[in-house]
Design a protein around this nucleic acid. Structure first.
Length: 490
RNA sequence: CGGGAUGUAGCGUAGCCCGGUAUCGCGCCACAUUUGGGAUGUGGAGGCCGCAGGUUCGAAUCCUGCCAUCCCGACCA
C-alpha cells in the first residue's frame, strides 16, 4: 500500500480522497465546495478535451462561447427547467465593492443590479435566447454548437471531481428542423460518449434512457451512459438530452419549414464533465495509487536511471536519449526522471501513485547486459527485456495495458451485475454485493420512488439493449415487459 | 437546512479534565555517507494554539460568543 493512502477495502471514500490528493490531482480551495485542479489532474482533463473535441468536430460540431452570467428572468421561461435548478443557483446581485469607515472591503449597496444575474448551472436558456436570432428558415438548420465552459451548481455536499460547486464541462446545444433529426443527434452523441468511455477511458458503460424521475429538467428524454465503480456504486458518466420543442417554445424560436409553415425548432443538449476524472480514478485504481489507461495518461512511460556516479548517468542518458526519440516518433510520451535528490525507490512509489502505465528502470548492470527492467502499473509485474527493439515492445505493451484495464473493469461489472426477481433478494444484494441489479419494474414513478426511499437504489437507466420479457415488478408484482437497471449511485 | 464532531508549524498529532508561553512524527534547510523498492547520521529553521471577548498575577488549557471545516441525512453531472 502506498504511504498515506488508506486501503480501498477499509474505507472506499477515504481511499478515493487520499488518491486525489496524494497523486497531486487536486486540492481543496479556500472556497467552500470548490477545488483546485492541479497540473497533473488538469493534464488528464486536457487529454480528454482533446479527444472529445476531435470527436465532436468529426461529427460536424463547432465550438462557441456564451456568457457565464445569465439574466434571472431567463430561468422563468421554461417551468420544469427552473424547478430543476432553482435550488442550486449562485446569484450575482451587485457589481461594486467599497472600503468602509473601518477600512473593511464591503459590498457597495448603491451598486445593486436591477436584474440579478445567475452563474450558469447550464446554458440552455441563454443559448436558446440567442438561437432565436440565428434561426429563421430550415436553411439555417441544423445548428451544431458545443461549448467548453465552467458551470456552478450550489450543491449541499461536494466531493473532489465527482461533485464540486464549480466544475468544468462541455455542453453541446443543437437545433434541428425535425424531431427525428434531433433524436438521431441525441443518440449519436450518446454513442460518442460511450465510445470515448470504453475506448479511451477503458471504462465499460451501459447505454440507456433515464426514467421520468431521473430525467433532465426540461427534457423529453434523457439518455445516459452508466458505469460501475469498484465499490459497486453506479456513476452517471455522460448525458444526452432530447429536449423536444420545450426550449424553442420557451424562447420563441420558430423557423419556416420547406412547406412554408412556421414551426418550433427541435433541440438537444449533451455534456460530460470533469467528473469523468473521478470515474477514471474510481474505476481502475488500487491501494498503490492511480491506474491510468495509457491513452489518457499524461505520462505514458517514465524512465528511472539507477546510478552511483556521474559517468554512469551520462552513459545511461545516452541510451535514454535514443529511446525517447524512438518513443516520441511513435507518439508515446516519456519522462526521464534523473533527479539526483530522490532515490530510485522513492521514484518507483511516486510513479505508481500517479498511475504511470509503464516504468523503465535502467542501471549499470543493464547497460552491461544490454537490457532494461520494465514494470507494468496495471499488473505490478516486472520483466527484464533487451534494449534492442524496446520502443516497439513498449508500444505493444501500452496497448496491452489499455486492453487489460478495460477487460478487468468489464469482468468486474459482469460479476457485479445480477438479475433479480424478488424484492427481498434485491435488498439483500444491495447490502451484501452492491452492483447493478437488473429487475422488472411496473413503469410508474411511484414505485421507483418507493424503492428509492426504502433502499436508496435508483433506476440508473432503461438499457437500450435490455431484455424484453414478461415479468412482474419486484415491488408491486404488476406486469412488466422489460428489465431495468438499478443501483445505488454517486 | 436537521444530527454529530473537530480547529495547535506545510501535513498529521500530544498537551486541555487538574492554568505557569507547546510534544512527537512526516515534510523542509545544511553537511556527510548513500542510490536495483519509499536511505542514514549530525546539526538547524519553522507557532498570534481558528477569531473576539471574559475570569486570572498568568490562558492552548476555564467561561461566553462568533467563524470555519469535516462526517451522517434530504439535493445532485
Amino acid at each position: 500500500m502506498s504511504k498515506g493512502v488508506v486501503s480501498k477495502d477499509e474505507d472506499y471514500s477515504q481511499w478515493y480522497n487520499d488518491l486525489v490528493i496524494k497523486a497531486d490531482m487536486a486540492e481543496y480551495s479556500p472556497v467552500k465546495g470548490c477545488m483546485i485542479i492541479k497540473p497533473y489532474g488538469y493534464s488528464i482533463w486536457e487529454k480528454m478535451q482533446a479527444v472529445l473535441d476531435g470527436m465532436f468536430k468529426e461529427t460536424g460540431h463547432v465550438n462557441a462561447y456564451f456568457p457565464m452570467m445569465i439574466p434571472k428572468s431567463f430561468f422563468s421561461k421554461e417551468a420544469s427547467h427552473v424547478e430543476g435548478f432553482a435550488k442550486e443557483c449562485a446569484v450575482v446581485t451587485h457589481y461594486r465593492l467599497k472600503t468602509d469607515e473601518n477600512g473593511q472591503v464591503v459590498v457597495d449597496e448603491t451598486a445593486k443590479l436591477e436584474e440579478e444575474l445567475i452563474l450558469r448551472p447550464t446554458s440552455e436558456t441563454i443559448i436558446w435566447n440567442t438561437y432565436r436570432g440565428w434561426i429563421q428558415s430550415y436553411r439555417d438548420l441544423p445548428i451544431l454548437v458545443n461549448q467548453w465552459a465552467n458551470v456552478v451548481r450550489w450543491e449541499m455536499r461536494t466531493r473532489l471531481f465527482l461533485r464540486t460547486t464549480e466544475f468544468l464541462w462541455q455542453e453541446g446545444h443543437t437545433a434541428h428542423a425535425t424531431a427525428d433529426e434531433a433524436i438521431a443527434e441525441t443518440e449519436q452523441m450518446l454513442g460518442v460518449y460511450a465510445d470515448f468511455a470504453e475506448n479511451w477511458m477503458a471504462l465499460p458503460v451501459v447505454k440507456g434512457k433515464k426514467t421520468a424521475n431521473e430525467r433532465f429538467a426540461g427534457a423529453l428524454d434523457t439518455y445516459c451512459i452508466e458505469a460501475l465503480m469498484q465499490d459497486g456504486k453506479a456513476l452517471q458518466a455522460g448525458t444526452s438530452h432530447f429536449l423536444g420543442q420545450n426550449f424553442a417554445k420557451a424562447f420563441d424560436v420558430k423557423f419556416t419549414n420547406k412547406e412554408n409553415k412556421l414551426d418550433y425548432v427541435w433541440a438537444t443538449s449533451w455534456g460530460v464533465s470533469t467528473r469523468l476524472i473521478g470515474a477514471l480514478i474510481m474505476a481502475h485504481s488500487d491501494d498503490a495509487g492511480l491506474v491510468l489507461p495509457p491513452k489518457l495518461a499524461p505520462i505514458q512511460v517514465v524512465v528511472v536511471p539507477i546510478y552511483k556516479h556521474e559517468e554512469e548517468l551520462e552513459n545511461i542518458s545516452g541510451f535514454v536519449k535514443e529511446l525517447t526519440r524512438d518513443l516520441k516518433a511513435k507518439n508515446i510520451s516519456v519522462k526521464f526522471d534523473k533527479r539526483d535528490t530522490h532515490r530510485p525507490g522513492a521514484k518507483f512509489a511516486e510513479y505508481e501513485l500517479k498511475g504511470v502505465p509503464l516504468r523503465v528502470a535502467i542501471g549499470s548492470r543493464d547497460m552491461q547486459n544490454g537490457t532494461v527492467e520494465l514494470a507494468r502499473r496495471d499488473t505490478k509485474t516486472k520483466e527484464t527485456v533487451n534494449q534492442e527493439g524496446l520502443a516497439m515492445h513498449i508500444e505493444g505493451l501500452l496497448e496491452e495495458i489499455q486492453n487489460n484495464i478495460y477487460q478487468k473493469a468489464f469482468s468486474f461489472r459482469a460479476e457485479n451485475t445480477t438479475e433479480v426477481d424478488s424484492y427481498d433478494e434485491f435488498k439483500r444484494l444491495l447490502d451484501e454485493q452492491p452492483g447493478f441489479i437488473s429487475a422488472h419494474w411496473d413503469g410508474t414513478s411511484e414505485t421507483e420512488q418507493q424503492i428509492k426511499d426504502e433502499t436508496k437504489a435508483t433506476i440508473r437507466c432503461i438499457p437500450l439493449d435490455n431484455k424484453k420479457e414478461e415479468g412482474k415488478c419486484i415491488l408491486t408484482g404488476k406486469p412488466s415487459t422489460q428489465r431495468v437497471l438499478f443501483a445505488r449511485a454517486y
